[in-house]
């Protein structure tokens, strides 16, 4: 049927402009397609031809670039919220897993041959509390974001805020992990490999941190409109 693909073309054009979590995107596009077909059906009932009905439905839906911007904001926000929830749960769990592993396989840390310098103790303490501080920041960001969603702030702005918190949180975590690893290697490199299970847990912690870094980077990409 001539013009029967007007809605399909519009949804395809919208799809091409959107980046973000696949299931959220599919859900948004399915709903948009349903709405356009509902509108076209109403216009057909009003006497328009199939092509005219679809063209009118698409025109009423809005210019694809403007609509894509709003949908992209939603996708960025959905990904940002998911990343913050992941940070909130995974970082404390990773930290606890590593500490339990260390206590089981190594027990209490033996003292270094010489008392560690102050800078190392500062890094160690900051690294110990960073997982909890970062997780707490993610919880607070999610709660504040929920309140801000009730204001006139656009979803694009909310997505950028969520992305910023996620990037800072994950950046702190990665920096803390790298700092304690480098510091320990500098003072007593053998300590890093004194227990293979603990070394493996350290590798797992880094893999998780890198995965979170990828998620945080996508927050920036998906909220760039």
């Amino acid at each position: 049927m001539a013009g029967a693909g007007v809605i399909d073309d519009y949804v395809t054009a919208l799809d091409r402009r959107l980046r973000g979590p696949g299931h959220v995107k599919d859900d948004l596009l399915a709903e948009a397609r349903d709405s356009l077909h509902d509108a076209a059906a109403a216009h057909r009932d009003g006497g328009l031809t199939e092509e005219a009905a679809q063209r009118r439905a698409v025109a009423e839906f809005g210019p694809v670039n403007a609509i894509a911007r709003e949908y992209q904001g939603l996708l960025g926000l959905a990904h940002g919220a998911r990343t913050l929830r992941t940070v909130m749960l995974v970082l404390p769990l990773t930290h606890v897993m590593w500490e339990l592993n260390r206590k089981f396989w190594i027990g209490a840390w033996n003292d270094f041959d010489a008392p560690p310098p102050d800078w190392y103790l500062v890094i160690a303490r900051l690294n110990d509390i960073s997982a909890w501080v970062v997780a707490g920041a993610a919880v607070i960001a999610l709660l504040i974001g929920r309140r801000l969603a009730r204001t006139a702030l656009s979803t694009v702005t909310l997505a950028r805020l969520a992305g910023t918190v996620a990037v800072v949180a994950v950046g702190l975590n990665v920096t803390g992990n790298v700092a304690i690893l480098a510091g320990t290697a500098h003072l007593d490199a053998a300590r890093l490999l004194m227990s293979p299970p603990v070394a493996a847990a350290t590798v797992v912690s880094f893999v998780i941190a890198l995965r979170l870094a990828v998620l945080a980077r996508r927050c920036v990409v998906f909220s760039s409109v």
Partner: peptide, 18 residues
């Protein structure tokens, strides 16, 4: 108003818990 703007607004209200 463009009908396409209604859906993002509804989803934002959902994010807000309303």
């Amino acid at each position: 108003l463009p009908t396409g703007t209604v859906y993002p607004a509804l989803r934002r209200l959902e994010t807000a818990g309303l």
